[in-house]
Design a binder for these strands. Sequence first.
DNA 1: GTGATTGCAAAGCGTTTGCACCGTA
DNA 2: TACGGTGCAAACGCTTTGCAATCAC
Lengths: 146, 146
Amino acid sequence: MLNQQERSRTWLQELKHNGYRLTSPRKAVVEVMANSDTVLSPAEVYDIGRGRYAKLGLVTVYRTLEKLEAMGLVQRVHRPDGCEAFIAGVEGHQHLLICENCGRVEYFGGDKLDGLIDKVQGDSGYEIRDHWLQFFGLCRACQRNN
Amino acid sequence: MLNQQERSRTWLQELKHNGYRLTSPRKAVVEVMANSDTVLSPAEVYDIGRGRYAKLGLVTVYRTLEKLEAMGLVQRVHRPDGCEAFIAGVEGHQHLLICENCGRVEYFGGDKLDGLIDKVQGDSGYEIRDHWLQFFGLCRACQRNN
DNA sequence: GTGATTGCAAAGCGTTTGCACCGTA
DNA sequence: TACGGTGCAAACGCTTTGCAATCAC
């Protein structure tokens, strides 16, 4: 895993390569997301981002997250409580382990799933195109504090 | 699996046992949900339900679905596109297989998951409390029509 | 009869859109 | 300089709440 400064830099380059301009609001959003290992709502990104660029607008947060998602740099996360679209940094397609208390996210490989997918596909006759596997629980730190 | 009429009857009894009154709007919502094997949004329940009870209000649909969910008779479903809370009939805790085209839902057991949960729990130090496993794809009928 | 339930209307909330101004390239 | 990007304000869609009328028990 890249360290956080490298990650910000990579993401900004990526934006540039895709023909987008590098502006202060975008830099703020990228830094917030690239430096976070927890799930963040757009409103949270906005709050934290304003610490880096005071004039940041919520609308720009939405628009920037949308671009980052399209570029595969962030990922939309759904949670059982309500259904706010949460966002997290991610590399590659992996599965999520989310702390219900602090929002921290870990990734794990899902290779164990292939056999199950084949079986379900055979039993049901469905053609499976996509899947969600998410675990919710408490991370080490939150287990101690609860 | 109970047939659909039995299921409606059971759900209505369940409502009564929990101290709720059996009203026409509630009967309409229960019948819609109990007779459907597809994922439905509150608005869809409302539309179909008005065929059974014309004066049905959308507000009542929300309130009834809330009660049915609390009683474990329906289940909230999250989908990748947007995040509308969809609902489906369910018995027991199983995993979902959802047709992306027609909304049809099947359930399958997730016993194969236990080993994976143990492994992830051990590797990460998380205490896993809940999980989502949902497959999205095309059911047999929709494969033919696409 | 009476208290739970309903449906309308309005409020609430998160997200998206319209538009004039701004700032990067 | 030109045009992509920004932020404000307003629109939007879905969900929840307030309240008087209604209806199951």
